[in-house]
């Protein structure tokens, strides 16, 4: 039995302690926005936030996450898709197939939380998720747009 705090709600899950957080989110809690891509922490499709940090959930045993730690998935990033990254993504039509995008958006949101005004080089180095459709240039532009929009607001 593990207790997990996901998107502000505490869940009791009955699961083998070695089960990766990804599969607990998808199969026990029913949050399927977080995706499986490789299972070896290479592609980043499974990226979630734990206490605000981007984490690849596919290799993280659920037993290593404490109840006090706040897990945020794509479903909980904003109540209505209004996170600056999500808004920029919609404005620039970033996704193609979209499968990697929840992980991409979570990685981008964590990058901005840590570094509100990243340079182009910092964005290129900081986003290491794989997208096979090839949305990278729009991902870059989307992050830059979110930076300028939040800057303009703040």
């Amino acid at each position: 039995m593990a207790k997990l705090t996901v998107n502000g709600r505490v869940h009791d899950v009955q699961v083998d302690p070695d089960t990766p957080l990804l599969w607990v989110l998808r199969e026990q809690i029913g949050l399927t926005g977080t995706k499986y891509g490789c299972g070896v922490a290479q592609c980043g499709a499974c990226t979630v936030h734990i206490d605000g940090q981007a984490v690849r959930a596919c290799t993280l045993p659920v037993s290593t996450v404490a109840e006090a730690q706040k897990i945020t998935t794509i479903e909980g990033l904003s109540p209505d898709g209004s996170h600056p990254i999500q808004k920029a993504w919609v404005a620039l039509d970033v996704p193609q197939c979209g499968y990697c995008q929840p992980g991409m958006i979570m990685a981008a949101a964590a990058l901005l939380a840590e570094n509100p005004k990243p340079s182009e080089a910092e964005i290129r180095a900081g986003i290491t998720n794989i997208c096979r459709c090839g949305t990278y240039n729009r991902v870059l532009a989307g992050i830059q747009r979110a930076v300028s929009e939040t800057g303009a607001r703040g």
């Binding site: 949050l31 399927t32 926005g33 977080t34 998935t73 794509i74 479903e75 898709g81 999500q86 993504w89 919609v90 039509d93 970033v94 996704p95 979209g98 995008q101 929840p102 958006i105």
Partner: peptide, 12 residues
């Protein structure tokens, strides 16, 4: 804009 973008940014 694409018809399928919003769902692809919210995990829906």
């Amino acid at each position: 804009p694409r018809l399928d973008t919003v769902e692809k940014t919210t995990g829906q």
